[in-house]
Design a protein around this nucleic acid. Sequence first.
DNA 1: ATTTATGCAAATCGTTTGCAAACCT
DNA 2: AGGTTTGCAAACGATTTGCATAAAT
Lengths: 148, 148
Amino acid sequence: MADRASELHTTVAKRLGRLDQRYTRNRRALVDVLRAAAGPLTIDDILGRDDDLALSSAYRNLAVLAEVGVVHRVSTGDDHTRYELAEMLTGHHHHHLVCDSCGSVSDFTLTEELEQVLQQALDRVAAGADFRTDHHRLDLVGTCDACR
Amino acid sequence: MADRASELHTTVAKRLGRLDQRYTRNRRALVDVLRAAAGPLTIDDILGRDDDLALSSAYRNLAVLAEVGVVHRVSTGDDHTRYELAEMLTGHHHHHLVCDSCGSVSDFTLTEELEQVLQQALDRVAAGADFRTDHHRLDLVGTCDACR
DNA sequence: ATTTATGCAAATCGTTTGCAAACCT
DNA sequence: AGGTTTGCAAACGATTTGCATAAAT
């Protein structure tokens, strides 16, 4: 656990360094908060989990972390953009259950097999439209357990 | 074509009436603009296609139309929410190609077969999470033909 | 020592809302 | 007439930015 965390920090530091960015205490704190989360978090979620984080710096650092590919922005439809660690770092391709009622978001996965079939179909679509795909996004939108 | 348009207007009128809402000229104009579009439109897109539409009324009417299930909000990640006719009205289940670079959004479809396999898998996920699904959302995010 | 990050306060911008006039039935 | 919709202008709220200070290398 400590091992994984320090490995993660090493990777993040490397990625930041590649773009001449420093791995400061605040940035480390953001990564720690996101790492501990069960799904993508809003800014308020994030600030609520570490009292030392300032709003504007959090936004700025999340932007930097997103730019170097460490953090991924998640737009669900309500205001409040959410943030999660990039799949490249977690090694965990996943999707989201988005609750229309309370706005909560949690993760789920499909079988590797279905994911591959899907990927092939999407590759075909992209090729046909001369579209260069960065990633796909698959969400379920509805009402969560707590809200029904 | 005129037939389809008037059929559409009839359906919309019915749905509005069900919630004691009137089908005014502005609302008709919005439906016409969305009907003619090749993908979901931003407010600016919409206002640009009909000079008589006022900003605040457009927002309000889109909200009403969304509430009665005629219009669907599409959040792509940049600011600028987009709007499209609900699939229930177009009878055309589709997905989106989202360009990270210029923000454009266009539609695509999967085969009926894959769509069904996917639906089954998603139903299983939802059942396992006690999640009541309203709809799913599958997008390709990347760079469009014009931007590459 | 020099460059970069921080955090407060102010600015920005998409969207929403108050309200008086115009509209529909 | 009675209630709804409209559209301007003002308000709102999430996010961004200016700037002087603190931190990192």
